[in-house]
């Protein structure tokens, strides 16, 4: 289905062959081409991509669409759906609150308050084979074009699976495009690495925070509070807030 492929294309989830096939279609379909251009601009402006969030937004406003035959406003069935969804939403919210679990809102607020992509260190040691790819990755990363950075770092990690720095910056690039799960999957396997140890703990903790996995996030924030490091103070502040929240529950 075109809609699903469009979402996968924008989320960088198509293989190179599938991407090319989709792009060749775009070359012959001006509507698709314009739409992708617009959606990519939207992604860039928002610095995040959530096809589901956009779909939800569009569906939420579907109730505004109506046909007025003979002057009568006929509302879409979406109104009924929207009402049902609202009721379910309200019930869920009440249940959530009755259970006293308010972490979902707070984790996102905390993430927004503390998250910042790491400054890229100067990469001076590069193999000839990966020079162009790494340059492109760093350039995209420094320009805060994290979707493009993800593409480059994915290739680099495929070619150099043991390179911790590539994994770390792939993880941060994922997180900077709001793909917390992928960031966790990328950072968790390198957690025992001696190189960039504090950075990995910090960004993995932030990824868990973004993904609302408070207990897992606390493991890594607490780890950072135990030693003298760049993140110690911030980790302590977040850990205290999360501890307080868990204690309140």
């Amino acid at each position: 289905m075109e809609h699903e492929r469009l979402k996968k294309y924008l989320a960088n989830e198509l293989s190179p062959e599938e991407r090319n096939a989709f792009e060749q279609e775009m070359e012959n379909d001006p509507f698709l081409q314009d739409a992708v251009e617009g959606l990519e601009a939207w992604q860039k402006d928002k610095q995040q991509w959530s096809a589901d969030a956009l779909e939800t937004k569009l569906q939420e406003q579907a109730h505004r669409i109506h046909t007025p035959p003979r002057g009568k406003m006929v509302l879409f069935n979406f109104v009924k759906l929207a009402l049902a969804a609202s009721i379910i939403g309200i019930i869920s919210l009440l249940t959530w609150r009755m259970l006293g679990n308010k972490t979902s809102v707070d984790t996102q607020e905390l993430f927004a308050a503390y998250y910042q992509p790491m400054t890229h260190p100067d990469a001076t040691v590069r193999g000839d084979h990966s020079k162009n790819e790494e340059d492109s990755a760093i350039q995209a990363y420094e320009k805060e074009n994290y979707f493009e950075a993800v593409n480059h770092y994915r290739k680099l990690t495929q070619n150099h699976p043991k390179n911790v720095r590539y994994q770390l910056f792939l993880g941060i690039s994922y997180l900077s495009t709001q793909q917390a799960k992928k960031a966790i999957e990328t950072l968790q396997p390198i957690i025992t690495s001696a190189e960039y140890q504090d950075d990995i703990h910090w960004y993995l903790a932030m990824a868990y925070l973004k993904n609302k996995e408070v207990t897992n996030a606390l493991v890594h924030f607490n780890h950072l509070t135990q030693t003298d490091n760049y993140y110690q103070q911030q980790a302590k502040e977040i850990a205290d807030k999360l501890d307080g929240k868990l204690a309140a529950n």
């Binding site: 075109e2 509507f31 739409a35 251009e37 939207w42 069935n77």
Partner: peptide, 28 residues
């Protein structure tokens, strides 16, 4: 005149139309 049918068309194309509109209007 079943509105669920136009609802299906909206579901299929609202994201494409949004992309087109954003390209030219540049405001969400």
């Amino acid at each position: 005149q079943d509105n669920s049918i136009t609802g299906e068309l909206y579901k299929r194309y609202s994201m494409l139309v949004f992309g087109l509109c954003y390209k030219y209007l540049k405001e969400e």
